[in-house]
Design a protein around this nucleic acid. Structure first.
Lengths: 237, 237
DNA sequence: CGACGCTTTGACACAACTCAACAACCGTGG
DNA sequence: CCACGGTTGTTGAGTTGTGTCAAAGCGTCG
C-alpha cells in the first residue's frame, strides 16, 4: 500500500493540511505491517504491552467482557482508525480488540506515539481530533443503547456505518460490505441475537434495508433516518 | 479556594509529579471563577463558542437530547474534571452540559488549552491521561447499559460514583452526597424514573444501600460488588 | 456426504415501560 | 402560622418489548 495515500492520511488531511515532514512521519508510523487472522485478539483487557495499532485493512471490534460471559462491543474501527490509543496513556488496556476478518495493522510503540506530540505538535493535534471524533461516536452509541428502541438503534447503527464508510470511499451509493453476523450485531446493539434477527426482518419487510451475506443494501435512507432520529452531522474540522 | 490545592491539581499529581511552573499554569487556568445557577446549561449541543471549563464545585451532567424529547445522560463530572474538552478540537459541541446544583467553574479558552500542549507537554500529557480516564468511564457506562440488568447497572453506578468521590475526598467511609432525583438517575441509567424507584426499593430491601434526601449510604459494598460485577480497577498512572 | 456456522421461526417468560393515582416534602405567600 | 402549589417519591395494574429455549432450515467447506 502506498502509505502516503493511506486511509489515515486521508482522514487527518481533512483536519489540517499536512506538511511533507508530517506525511513522512505518518509513513514511518505505517511502515510496519502485521497480519492478524480472523478471530484473533489484538489487545486484551488488562494487557500492559505499550503498543497502539493503526488499522490498515479488514474489520475489527473493540469490546469488554463481563464476569457472566456477556460481551459488549464498543466500536468497530474502520481502516485508518487507531486501536488502543487510550491504553498508551492508561498503560493498561481497559478493553479488548478482536479481528472480525483477516486484518492488517501497523504497530506503533507507545513511546513513539507520545514523542509525536513533541516533534509534530500539529500532527498530534490532528490525532487528538480523530480521537475526539471516535469518542463522540461512542457517546452516540451510548445514547442509542440507552434511549432508542431496538429497531431505531439498529437503523441508526447502519446509517452511521454507512456514513463512515462513504467518507473513506468504502461504500458505493446504496451498498457496502459488512461482514458481521447477528451475534456480533447483538453484542454491539445490546440485544440478543434472536431479537436482532427479528429487527432485521422488520427492516426488510418495511423495505428500508437488508443485510445478506455480508452486504448491506440501503433501500430508503430517508425513511431510515426518520425512523432512527439520525441527523447528518456537520463535521467541522 | 487555594488553587494550588485544587481538585484538578490533586488529580493530575497522581499521574505525574508537577513542577512549580506547571502548578503555576494550572493556577492560571483556574484563576477565573464563574457561578452557574442550578438548572442552567453551561454548554449546549451545536454550540460553537470555543470554551472549556474546569468544574470547581457543585454537580453537573453531560447529556444528549433526542428528537422525541428523551434525554441520555453521559456522565457526571466531579470537581476537578474538565467540561467540554472534546469540543475544543471538534469546534462544535456534540453534547450539552447542565448544572444539577449551583456550580462554580473556571473557563478556559480553547486556544489557551491547545497552547498548553506546546508550552507544557508534560501537563498536556497529564490532561490527556485524565481525559482517557473519563473516556474509559463512558465506555464502562456503555457496557452497563448494554449488558447489565437494571439492578446490576444501578448498583454499579453508585459503586463507581462512590470510588470516584473517595479519590477526591468527597466521600466518607460509607456515605456521600448525591443530589440526583430519580428522573436524573433514570436518564443516566437508561431506565424510566418509575423503574428506578422500584430498583432503589429493591436495593433498600436487600439492605445494600439507600438513597435518601440527596445522601447515599452504602450498607454492604461487598454484596453490591458481587451483584453488579464491579471490580476494583488498578488505576496505574 | 456429514459437520458446522449461521439464520430463521415459534412459543413462552419476564423485565421494564406506561398510565394513573396518591403521599410526602418542600418553599412561598397570605 | 397554616394553606397552598410544585416537585419528588411511592405504589398498583396492565401492557409491551425483549430475552430464553428449542428446533428446524440453509450454505459452505472439508
Amino acid at each position: 500500500m502506498p502509505h502516503v495515500n493511506s486511509h489515515l492520511v486521508k482522514k487527518l488531511n481533512t483536519f489540517v493540511q499536512l506538511s511533507e515532514r508530517e506525511l513522512g512521519c505518518l509513513a514511518e508510523l505505517q511502515s510496519s505491517s502485521l497480519r492478524v487472522k480472523r478471530g484473533m485478539d489484538l489487545v486484551y483487557e488488562g494487557q500492559t504491552g505499550h503498543m497502539a495499532y493503526i488499522l490498515q485493512a479488514g474489520w475489527a471490534c473493540s469490546f469488554k467482557l463481563l464476569p457472566d460471559g456477556g460481551r459488549q462491543i464498543i466500536a468497530f474501527p474502520v481502516p485508518g482508525d487507531c486501536i488502543g490509543l487510550r491504553s498508551v496513556l492508561l498503560r493498561t488496556s481497559d478493553h479488548s480488540f478482536s479481528a472480525l476478518t483477516d486484518v492488517v495493522v501497523s504497530g506503533v510503540e507507545a513511546s513513539r506515539m507520545i514523542s509525536i506530540f513533541d516533534e509534530f505538535p500539529r500532527l498530534g493535534t490532528a490525532i487528538l481530533w480523530a480521537a475526539s471524533r471516535d469518542e463522540a461516536m461512542i457517546v452516540e452509541h451510548l445514547v442509542s443503547i440507552g434511549r432508542r428502541t431496538a429497531i431505531e438503534r439498529t437503523a441508526y447503527f447502519f446509517l452511521e456505518l454507512y456514513e463512515r464508510l462513504r467518507l473513506v470511499g468504502l461504500a458505493t451509493d446504496k451498498e457496502f460490505d459488512c461482514p458481521f453476523n447477528q451475534y456480533v450485531l447483538a453484542d454491539a446493539l445490546g440485544l440478543s441475537a434472536i431479537h436482532v434477527n427479528r429487527v432485521l426482518r422488520r427492516l426488510r419487510e418495511l423495505k428500508l434495508m437488508t443485510l445478506k451475506k455480508g452486504k448491506v443494501i440501503i433501500y430508503d435512507a430517508a425513511a431510515l433516518k426518520r425512523l432512527s432520529g439520525f441527523q447528518d452531522e456537520q463535521i467541522t474540522p
